[in-house]
Amino acid sequence: MENAPAFSDMIGMWTGVCLSMCIFSFLYKDNPFYKLAEHIFVGVSAGYWMCIGYWQVIYPDLIQRLQGGDWRYLIAAVLGIMLLMRIFPKCAWMERWPLAFMVGIFAGYNIVYTMQAQILKQIEATVLPLWGTGSWQTACINLIVLAGVLTGLMYFYFSREHDNSLWGKSARLGVWILMISFGAAFGYTVMARMSLFIGRVMFFQDVWRATVQFFGGS
């Protein structure tokens, strides 16, 4: 028989249950319990990510490095403080500098790494052999992928009219491929959400069992 849970664990579990029930109450209609849980969620999330950001980025990458004498990181500190100047209307112009810095890094990073990791790798994974693959199924799937990607891209090319030419017909085939893809993605998303819901129901079940154990049941 498992050990009975501690009182502090029970408090934690029942806090989770109460908050979960408050969220689920929205299925009936918008109500004060849902609003309460929603506002707690926003406040705790903002605080959580700020604390994690501080202990995983600011403290090791900025404070410790500055304490270690790496003065280059003063630039990052100054840029960060300039970003915070947004809260003072007279100094709000200062936030443009860190914003420009971040957009510049983002743009430079995207040009090289998106090109390498997204575009070239995706093309490499698309251009696959159609003959001599060992099985006809693999060859067919490779053909579907190649034709699907090409026709899908033709559909997204709006600089040419999708008329009755071969281009237009190919673009229309691309729509069919995209529809299958959207259907699969939708089904997958629904199943992922259902899996989360089942997880919550199992959580309620676990808490109930733990409560029974806590009060001496088996």
Partner: peptide
């Protein structure tokens, strides 16, 4: 592995080309 991969890849390639062009 076939239709869904093709559709998602077409979307990703289109979005990536767009991202590179906006970066430029």
């Amino acid at each position: 592995g076939g239709f869904n991969a093709a559709g998602q890849r077409a979307i990703m390639l289109g979005a990536s080309v767009g991202l590179v062009s906006i970066s430029l």
